[in-house]
Design a protein around this nucleic acid. Sequence first.
DNA 1: CCGCTTTATTGACGCAAATCATTGTTTGTC
DNA 2: GACAAACAATGATTTGCGTCAATAAAGCGG
Lengths: 251, 251
Amino acid sequence: MANLQPGKPLDMAAIKVACANCNLHNLCLPLGIDTRDIERLDDIINRKRPLARGEYLFQAGAPFHAIYAIRSGSVKSFTATEDGQEQVTGFHLPGELVGLDAISSDTHNCSARALETTSVCEIPYPQLEELSALMPSLQRQLLRVMSREILQDEHMMMLLGRKAADERLAAMLMSMSNRFKQRGFSPREFHLSMSRNDIGNYLGLAVETVSRLFTRFQEDGLLETERKHVRILDLARLSVLAGANRISPDE
Amino acid sequence: MANLQPGKPLDMAAIKVACANCNLHNLCLPLGIDTRDIERLDDIINRKRPLARGEYLFQAGAPFHAIYAIRSGSVKSFTATEDGQEQVTGFHLPGELVGLDAISSDTHNCSARALETTSVCEIPYPQLEELSALMPSLQRQLLRVMSREILQDEHMMMLLGRKAADERLAAMLMSMSNRFKQRGFSPREFHLSMSRNDIGNYLGLAVETVSRLFTRFQEDGLLETERKHVRILDLARLSVLAGANRISPDE
DNA sequence: CCGCTTTATTGACGCAAATCATTGTTTGTC
DNA sequence: GACAAACAATGATTTGCGTCAATAAAGCGG
């Protein structure tokens, strides 16, 4: 974000974009960093103009120079398979970081596109690395965020490897629900910014299967959908389905 | 590894276990770190007695206090699903780090077991974090290794989400082949230390499917197997299958 | 060396989900 | 406001892979 000058407390634009004033800062990189140090982090962050739906945050193959934190809106990241099809690797909500997989290769391996009007904070990586060496709390948080990403990916591997279609969709919906809740929104009613196609792609399912599952969930009284708007009626049951064992089909 | 005392150059045990003398050090954490600093890294590393096949390196739920580098042998890591079944999340060869997913939660989320007689280097995490703050090159490499892990997991997600059974096994074999090659072994002939069960579990396939695929690959002249010993006959074709497009089934 | 357990291979069968096909609905553009 | 393009829903059909079952081979402890 733009530099926050302590001498200009009335500059709304500057205030709004400072990490210290961002209501996401305990979900994001500044977590666990004290106020003085957050300002130093602020200083290296660039605020970009909002992206329109469909715009690229970065594209696969581009040289890597920054990671991005979502401030508002949402983003999908995806790689291309060898045969040119895309594979969605994640959906990112405000407070989440995108581009961490590019650190090792100095090149973006996946692309990221805005799913709706989205604003992001650009964090130049060389400077982040440098600052991390000076601020143990930042280094610590950066490593934690990356570790969490690994954990989530492992969770996803389990989902794709072992779970049935309905369990996958339920898990995805529960994940969204929990993340919206974390961000102060309703866990029972929200807007899915991605298409059914993206959902299917992400979950390793055909679009048709996703569509059918939404209608089945609705028939079963689990939820109601109106296009991309979802209202969960039975959060408990959905949660069970998401982490369900398939032990007793005898009832 | 045990502290290497400069005054005792004839202490073979001490020499052998020092990072500086380890032939894996350009695959492992010391990559890109100069000789002087490697010694400081050495100082915090503990060398453990070799683990027998089946022994746990750590178990899920245990408090996290160290990450591990494989020195020799191999390890599988796995989580338990809600219904108590296990899901293999990775196989680890010498030079690779295990336990990175525990950093964010202070608790091991997955277990790691030796697939054969295995020796590892234990790297206490608090000290590693501390040292990283002092050594930019170490911090840099640690972040790179974690980023690479994220990248690999994304690759795995694509495998599980989009690829057919034969492509998955081919990709897994190619991965092993490449990793053996990196370590100075033959890329065409190697020993798979894990069971068919583990392979199937890892790839999201039934054991029977893995078995059938091995026989099919053999019939197709791609490879020869004798139990766990694999000899790849047509590396090129296997590689194509691993990253294959499914465009032209018309031949 | 012999039974016992674990692991691997192979076959028959069924089902969950992919694919194909059609229609309806929404969104964006000129 | 009309048209095209993208998206969503639903039915019909096919198929890849999981499940079940049986046998064989290998590893292991006494």
